[in-house]
Amino acid sequence: MKITRKEVEYVAHLARLELTPEEAEEFTGQLGQILEYFDKLNELDTSAIEPTSHAIPVVNAFREDVVKPSDDQETALKNAPAREDGFFRVPKIIE
């Protein structure tokens, strides 16, 4: 078994996904298969190869430090489910 159901539930929680018991069962099997496939890839010796972070060989895309007009408040808040006095309104969350 490459991944336990408990791990699947933990990852789902981190991603704020709600899984039914059936779904958790199903994904445990599927994720296990995916991880098994990685075992196959792991047979290759890649110790001398730098891990790939990007698929394209481009570095240093910059912008200059210049202020551009921002959106107005109305536009910014347009899609907000709840708002008040120019703020997004959200349930209180205590960390």
Partner: peptide, 21 residues
């Protein structure tokens, strides 16, 4: 003067949600 990944101003004390894009 501008944010790290976009051109919005970094100035402190503006009305809420006016330095956003």
């Amino acid at each position: 003067k501008s944010k790290i990944f976009c051109g919005c101003s970094t100035e402190f004390g503006a009305p809420p949600n006016t330095h956003v894009c």
